[in-house]
Amino acid sequence: MAGDLAVGARPAAAAAGARRRVDLTGWVLLAPACLFLVLVFVLPLAQILVLSVTEPATSLAHYRRVFGSPLYLRVLATTFETSLVVTVVCLLLAYPLAYVMARRGGAVAGTLLAVIGVSFWTSFLVRTYAWMVILGSNGPVAALALALGLGSPPQLLFTTFASTLGMTHILLPYMVVALYGVMKNIDVTQLRAAASLGAPPLAAFRHVFLPLSLPGVVNGCLLVFALCLGFYVTPVLLGSPRDMMISQLIAQQVEELLAWGFASALAVVLLVATVAVMVVYDRVAGLDRLWG
């Protein structure tokens, strides 16, 4: 992104006039989309910001409460930590899967895509409850451990492990599709070219395929991380109370206490923290890779 700005600043003043007209056309074309975004995104967001400092009275009391209590910052930290872990696990699982789908194509890709699709279209609540049965103390995992003579397994359900597993399962399709979409457009002749120039398969993968697949990685991680930040039902049902996510506290303020001012303040803190993480992410991974 920083690179783009530098490029934009370079052209001579003479070219700027001609470019401005082109830019204007672009803006006209963009106007409907911008208007839509302003109406359904920017304005409500501004409203939340205003609510957080005006309801019930104009003050910063809500923010003092967020930063003054050990609860909210702790839960916020848990939320980011959980999202990070889930994103990394999703990436590690999805990358080989998407790689096989993209390289083999045909029936293999179709079958795998169908399996992922079925999982994706099953309600996340159903999938969460399914994990409760599978990991439960009378479930198949425990039965298998007993049958193999391993004795009863340690408590699986209502742990951070179960919570992470459930969220990974639910978010994995997003990562696979993001990676697959990029990988299947990678020109295989480039890999062959690398091979013909003497690169062993691993080197060809590392120097050719991996860099070309990075836009998918960047996109998938962003998608999964952002979606994960808003999760709370799955950790509540599968995890321990220590796995509580911030959206659960926000929902509680909105739905049970009608404290919309405080809920807005919590939401703003979450948003600012998320933007901060994205800025760091941009520095490290480069969001401009999204556009290939």
Binding site: S69, P70, L71, R74, V75, T78, P241, R242, M244, L249, Q252, E256, L257, A259
Partner: peptide
């Protein structure tokens, strides 16, 4: 609100 916050904190620690 006080009871809910204290309970959430008690649960999370």
């Amino acid at each position: 609100a006080m009871v809910k916050e204290r309970f959430a904190q008690w649960l999370a620690t």
